[in-house]
Every structure is written in C-alpha cells, then in structure tokens.
Design a protein around this nucleic acid. Sequence first.
DNA 1: GTCATCAAGATACGGACCGTATCTTGCGGA
DNA 2: TCCGCAAGATACGGTCCGTATCTTGATGAC
Lengths: 195, 195
Amino acid sequence: MTQRRRGEELEQAILDATWEEFGEVGFAKLTIEGVARRAGTSKPVIYRRWPSMLELMVDCATSRMPTVDSIPETGALREDTIAVLKLLRERMVMIGPAAMHGMLSLVSLDPEALRVLVTRFISHVLSLMDTVVDRAAARGELDPTPLTERLRRLPIDLARNEFLITGRVEDEAIDAIVDEVFLPALQGSGAFATE
Amino acid sequence: MTQRRRGEELEQAILDATWEEFGEVGFAKLTIEGVARRAGTSKPVIYRRWPSMLELMVDCATSRMPTVDSIPETGALREDTIAVLKLLRERMVMIGPAAMHGMLSLVSLDPEALRVLVTRFISHVLSLMDTVVDRAAARGELDPTPLTERLRRLPIDLARNEFLITGRVEDEAIDAIVDEVFLPALQGSGAFATE
DNA sequence: GTCATCAAGATACGGACCGTATCTTGCGGA
DNA sequence: TCCGCAAGATACGGTCCGTATCTTGATGAC
C-alpha cells in the first residue's frame, strides 16, 4: 500500500487513468472497474465523485480539450474559417467518433445534460467562429447585418456532421465546406454587399 | 409450448419483438435477452441469425423505415426541399437520437458496416433530394451545372446535424435551413442564373 | 503530540447480461 | 414413416453494474 492520495491529487489521477484507459480500450469498452483498476483505486472512490461514466467521461474529455483563446488573424475570412474548422477537427479527433456518439447518445434524453455538453464542447468553437466573422466585418470584408446565427455556425455544423457520419474530416472536405457552401451562402445572403 | 415457429415467420416475430422492446425500454437498455424473452424464444435463436445487437437493430429499423418512392412535386424547389426534410425528420424521429447515435457509434470503427448503414439509411433521402434538384432544373428554376454533391445534400446534412445534436428538428429549423442557408447558397453559387 | 474524524481503499454482494455449448424435441421433407 | 435439422430450453463462466460494509491511513483541531 503506497501513499494514500486524496482530494485534488486523487481526482486528477482518476481523470488521467480514464483518459489512458479510453485511449487503450476505446469508449465502447470503457468501464468504471477498468478505470479504478488502472488508477490504483476502487469503484466506490469513483462513484463518490461521479454519478456515472457519462459525467466522468465528460469531465475527462473537457480537461483534455485544447482550447484556444483566439485564432490568428490571417486577414481573410476564408482562411480564418478554415483555421477554425481545423481546430474543431483536432478537438473531435481527440475524442473520436465513438465517444462523441456515446456521449451524445447518453445525453440525448436529458435536456439539462445536453445543455452542459453543448456548453462545454460546442460553445468554444462557436465563439471563435463569431470572432472570425466579426473580424471580417471589421475589415469591411463583409456586412454582418444579414448574417443569422444559423449562417454563422454553418461551417461548424457541416464539419461536425461530416465527422459524426464518416468519422473523419479531410482537408478537402474543409475546403469544400468553405468554398462550395459557406462563402456562396454568404454571397447569396448579400453579405458581400460591395462586390 | 405453443406452435413452433420457423424461418421467415420466426424472423419476423423477432424483428417485431425488437421494435416493441426498443420502443419500451429504449436503445440504451435494449438487450438480446430481453428481445428473446419478448419474442418467446431464446438467445441462441437470435444469435444464429444476427451476430450482434447492431445488425439486429439495423435490420429492425430498416424494415420499419417508411420509404417514399417520390416526393409530390409542388412546382417550387423551396417547397420540395422542405418536403424532403420533413420526410427525413419523420424517419429520424422514428429511430430516435439515442438509437441513431448508438448505431453510428457501433459502426464508427468499421468502414464496411458504416457503408452498409449509410446505404440503408441515408441514400434514400439523398436520392429524393437529387430528384428534387433535377426537377427544379427541368423546370428551368435553376441551373444544375455549378451544383456539387455537397451543395445538393446541404439541407439533409444540416437537418441531420440538428437532430443529432439537439434530438429534434422544429419546423422553424427546416425553414431556416432552406431559406437562410440552402437557397442563398444556390444563389451565391450562380445556380439561379436567370435571376 | 494526541486523538477524533473522515475519506481512501479493499472486499463482497446480488443482479443483469454477455456469448457459447449442450441437449431435447417438434416439425418438415424425402 | 422416419431422418435430419433447427427451435427452444437450460446452463456455463465471465464481466460489469451499483451499493454496502469494514478497515485503515491521513488530516486537522486542540
């Protein structure tokens, strides 16, 4: 019996073990017992902190998620948008399609849990996208007036959908989303008034 | 011991039981044992036919899925598209978000299984959407030349994404997808050349 | 420094379900 | 009529669930 861990230290060790176990056996085979074993602790210790695998996994994934304060400004809406989508892809790939579906599945019945999940995982990227659009507006590249919420998050919705269905997002897909859909949609909405 | 069922009849009874059990306990708690119990048969009988819950559920859902040969032509691309999205919604609601995520999750590792799932569940709606676009082209409502695959399936991708994330697709969402995104994107792509 | 308290950790429980193997028994075809 | 096959019943070892119980180490109050 080694040094007995408590509080923050113990909690972190469990989150670490969860992440390792997740990487090794995948989300489908992730189990509380397995995590406890790997963390060198026991089930009750985990259950005392997290009511179920869902909350544990959400906390675990959240703590691992790279967040970025701001996208480097490239000076063009197109490139900025692509940068946001690549960050989004990076985040999704870390979690993997199975775990994303797993979390969404567990959460799809419970509106409150859904809200938490959205806040933790989606809001960040959405706000980056907002920044990108606002910047373009500030540069005079586009007129934000006709831009609805839905239009702003269009590239993110499409990239996420791509990942959820196919399990990947190729560079070509990102380009296509921006060039074949997003920019034309802005164009057709009259956002590029000066052109 | 009642009459012993065989072959097609037995198979159908199992699919029926699966659907009933699914409706009652939900996808998360769906079990082979439960289905066998409800169908009045036993696990080996099911395992002889389906290697796992995934295949069983896919077959079950497929057999219940309303397929429509063609969308009634309204004479306008906008209304036709909305009709396709409402059919898609109907299909997704039948399955429910949890089961959709469940199936996608189970399938996300196996490219071949993914292909099967896509063929069974997605292709149908995609081809309806294609028909709708082709019709609009035939009416001279739009020029299909600049329409990429991605642009054609744009409304479907967005509606599916909406459902996967929020678990529902309101009428307003459908309208917004068509009016704020799809039609402007066609516009911006130069598909409405004559306007 | 001592000691009361509280949580860590170990262990065990009943229960559900997995996927498979074995056996019998009813049904259908030759 | 009888043979063969699959339906159905049963049981198996196994894993994991979520909880209860108990011991023991660490911490913090005094």
